[in-house]
């Protein structure tokens, strides 16, 4: 079995980009490995703001949607956030049909995604600060 990591994780300021490197098809055969590597990173970095970059992935099976929901839950429990980016048209359609695009936030290409993700975190931080002020005037 190939022991080479399937994912790489790179930090961009407050954001971490997890890129799927070794698979153009994500399905039942490699989903366990994918889940282990991402969940391992989430566990080791509580509060991580993680963006999963799918630009190398052509196809993903429904088993991967299950894994993404699990990862989303784990990130949320670890006080972090999760975003997905660079999904091809077919994969985007899967998210639209299943309406899971209303649970998992999806951005376009990485560069734009990083900007929007950083901005959304700033807005969330400001909202948090205001709600704190409102609670303790």
């Amino acid at each position: 079995m190939n022991n080479e990591a399937m994912m790489t994780f790179e930090e961009y300021g407050k954001l971490t980009v997890g890129t799927i490197q070794k698979a153009s098809v994500l399905d039942a055969l490699n989903v366990t490995r994918f889940g282990e590597e991402v969940l391992g990173h989430v566990k080791a970095h509580p509060g991580v703001n993680l963006m999963l970059d799918f630009h190398r992935v052509d196809y993903l099976s429904s088993a991967v949607l299950t894994e993404l929901l699990r990862i989303n839950e784990a990130v949320r429990e670890a006080q972090g956030t999760l975003r997905l980016c660079s999904l091809n048209e077919d994969i985007r359609k899967v998210f639209e049909i299943t309406n899971l695009n209303k649970i998992l936030i999806i951005y376009d290409a990485l560069e734009d995604a990083l900007r929007r993700y950083a901005r959304s975190l700033e807005v969330a931080a400001q909202e948090d600060a205001w709600s704190h002020v409102n609670r303790n005037p």
């Binding site: 949607l65 299950t66 929901l69 699990r70």
Partner: peptide
């Protein structure tokens, strides 16, 4: 529950 498993 939170296992992520579902059925369409």
């Amino acid at each position: 529950g939170k296992s992520g498993r579902f059925i369409t």
